[in-house]
Design a protein around this nucleic acid. Structure first.
Lengths: 186, 186
DNA sequence: GTTGAAGACTTCAGTAGTAAACTTCGAAGC
DNA sequence: GCTTCGAAGTTTACTACTGAAGTCTTCAAC
């Protein structure tokens, strides 16, 4: 889940086949089958992100805020991390985390306090309200995902998952980690 | 293709199974199979975007610039569009397009001139250099995509494409278009 | 015990985006 | 032929991010 926020409107996309045709016209060496898979993948992902983004708007938080809540929930109780650690996990600079935390504190979704045992450190902790907000996002996301996959039976889902994981492993191998900023979340 | 640019480093991600386990621990109602498919999809897409982004860095352009080149190439000769039309296609505000075009003009990848037949309008046209730059991105992207899909035989590729398109159709139906910004491209 | 270096976070300057105000050209009404 | 309206782009104000500089605490060395 990630996505959407601004609102200049969604891009006006060509039909998938028209897009592939344009690629073939302008760059004949392209393999249409490969391009179709890749383009569909990107487009599906984008649409999903738009959907998640709308759900977040309904819940009154931005996807930037959601990312932070998710990172805190995933580490488990007592739902604490330092700003620097959060920044690494989210792929942001510490400076950006400072501001995100400011907003979340203002909204009561996390607290920020100095670590008394080691006063250089700061501890960001999820509040009950923050945890509840995250649970709400999960309920909406799960409903959307169930609907999205409703046309696929169990074996199709398994096959899709297996192929995606195979592809994922291949990119991760060639991209041992490190790297360039990204855009989305899980 | 879209992606990466900044450089606070890539997010430090949990292992896929560990991530699913965390979701199950914190939100037991979740369907692990569904979550696995969705998470793998998002993660694969992100990794791909990182890869595309690196290629663009190597070629000396940003993904913002690349989006504009692509839109112009896709319309075909004489590779012309107005700023407003470009903004709609890319899902940006006209204001943002003004600045993107500024940069592209400075780099010689597009030209901007008033439409003499209708002096309210501006015409953005791809230069030969801009078209060549786009072709270079396609050559790199195609090589990466071939490598990515090398483990899949033709029927697996076809099956994957078919499923993705089925899912895409479902989201597009429930999301008749309109609305929230997005992040990636094709 | 004071000094110096390292680490963790924040602050500052610069960039790219949105939203909204503004400017200009073209078309229509009278 | 002037006036008004609308469409197309640009400018302005504000937000969120990066990268680099700055501040404050801790730890090690002397």
């Amino acid at each position: 889940m990630t996505a959407a926020a601004g609102s200049a409107g969604a891009p006006q996309e060509l039909d998938l086949d028209a897009q592939i045709a344009a690629y073939q016209r302008e760059f004949p060496e392209v393999d249409p089958q490969v391009e179709k898979v890749v383009t569909a993948l990107g487009r599906l992902n984008r649409r999903m992100n738009v959907a998640y983004g709308r759900q977040l708007v309904d819940l009154g938080i931005s996807s930037a805020e959601w990312e932070v809540l998710k990172a805190l929930v995933v580490v488990g109780r007592p739902y604490r991390l330092g700003p620097g650690d959060l920044a690494k996990r989210l792929g942001l600079t510490p400076a950006a985390m400072t501001h995100r935390i400011d907003r979340l504190v203002t909204e009561g979704l996390v607290t920020r306090e100095r670590d008394e045992a080691n006063r250089v450190r700061v501890i960001v902790e999820l509040t009950d309200e923050g945890r509840e907000k995250w649970l709400q996002t999960m309920r909406l996301a799960a409903a959307f995902e169930d609907e999205l996959l409703q046309d696929l039976n169990t074996s199709e889902r398994a096959a899709l998952g297996e192929i995606l994981i195979r592809l994922l492993r291949r990119v991760e191998d060639s991209q041992p980690d490190a790297g360039g900023r990204l855009e989305d979340l899980d």
